[in-house]
Amino acid sequence: MSTVIPTEAEIIQRARDLIPLLRERADACEKNRMVSKETIQAFQEAGFFKILQPKRWGGYQMHPNVLNQVLMELARGCPSSAWNVMVLGVHPFEVGLLPPQVGDELWSADNSVLVSSSYAPFGTVNKVDGGYVLNGEWLTSSGCDHAAGGAFVGGRVRENDEVVFRSFWVQRQDFDIVDDWHVVGLAGTGSKKLIIKEVFVPEYRSHAIGAYDEESHGGVENLYKMPFFYVFYAAVSSVIIGMARGMVDLYIEHMVPRQNINQAVGAAVNDPFIKSRLGEAYSKILGASSRVLHNTEEAWSYASRGELVPLDVRIRHFASNQFTGGECFDAAHMIFKKTSTRGIWMDSPIQRQMRDILVGANHITQNQDNIGDLLGGHLLGNPLPQPNPFGAKPAAAAH
């Protein structure tokens, strides 16, 4: 049966239409420390997990900015739920980078099966004949309770006298889940620990996750010529932008009926500081949103022609997107302070949204300190660190 692919406008509108429902469920999501099965089912029915899935297995294979815009909408309603869509929705893209045998094994019976991940190399990996043996604990696997298709986990392994950072697809029956997710924000993501003991992963279920060259991306369809780390990092930034947009929504709802204690001012909407903080915060969020969407569109202009994205472009995009978390946190905190005492009650969605942004901005993909040094050094003509984080065999730089 052929797949009916919605338009970009249709699928983004589906996300927008779910915002009220997600806001209703956000408190329960946080208290249960995971997204409900009903919410995940709603996302399945909306097609969000198919956006980057190859058409070969029933996916939509759409522009990466479709996922980014969907995430920007969903996170306005419930950051944790949107975070699950981001993580579980980006892995179909990764399957598109692997040999077709992986997609056949994963989706032959059910092409809606989801995969979670834990890329930080917490465990150990040993190269053996025909593949790898994995052992250890992998933390923070968001949405793992909904991922019947297993997980991608990251690990460093020595190959040919160099250390390679690889991703491994581990099937669900090959790991245990430990519920250790007790955190200050994004508690509803269900980002639990995976335990893997002496699991063999065949060579074809793994790839060098940072590789970006003709060997790793040359023989795939145009969407999958986008660098994986770029697509993933931009998706994280998009969720955080959505969280900050949600903070603006809540702030406006909070301030419109509010009366200021200063009788000379009267209604809060007449307070110049309440207005100016909102205007500045909104501008910061809009700037971050425009940058992420623009960067992805520029990278797509190469990939959609079947070309690899040049090194210089990749560096600018990868680095500049990592400032999103800090900018959105600053914007959200700026208006949170103007809610005064009303914003701190535990039954106020404003404080939950603020805590979620705090945790989202702490994600490794938002490491503006280290990446600022790398980007500034590149602009000043400094050589890239080795190993090159942008691919061992980069495409020629743009001039």
Rank of each mutant, 00 (worst) to 15 (best):
F318E: 03
P310H: 14
P394V: 05
N32S: 13
T324Y: 04
L71R: 00
G89I: 10
S320A: 11
S304F: 00
R205K: 15
A46G: 09
N222I: 03
T124I: 02
D312L: 04
V256L: 10
Y233N: 06
V133Q: 12
A398C: 04
V70M: 05
P387T: 03
R166M: 10
Q13E: 15
M226Y: 01
G58N: 07
L67N: 05
M247V: 03
V35A: 14
L97Q: 01
V220E: 01
E214P: 03
K37I: 09
P99E: 12
C78M: 01
Q353F: 01
R305I: 01
G279A: 06
V256T: 10
L293N: 08
A9N: 14
I344K: 12
A398H: 13
A9V: 15
M346Q: 14
L74A: 07
I371N: 07
E8H: 06
Q171M: 06
R245F: 02
S320F: 05
M334W: 01
A15H: 12
N321G: 10
R305C: 06
C328N: 11
G279L: 01
S142M: 09
Y132K: 02
G58K: 01
A268T: 09
S118C: 12
P227M: 15
V239N: 05
Q263A: 13
P227V: 12
G96T: 06
R352S: 09
A299Q: 14
P20R: 04
G343D: 06
S283N: 10
K338A: 06
D271Q: 10
D104R: 14
D180E: 15
V265C: 15
N321I: 09
N135K: 09
R355G: 00
D330H: 12
M86P: 01
I344C: 06
I274K: 09
L194R: 03
V236N: 06
G96Y: 04
V184D: 15
Q53D: 04
K275C: 11
Q13G: 02
A267G: 11
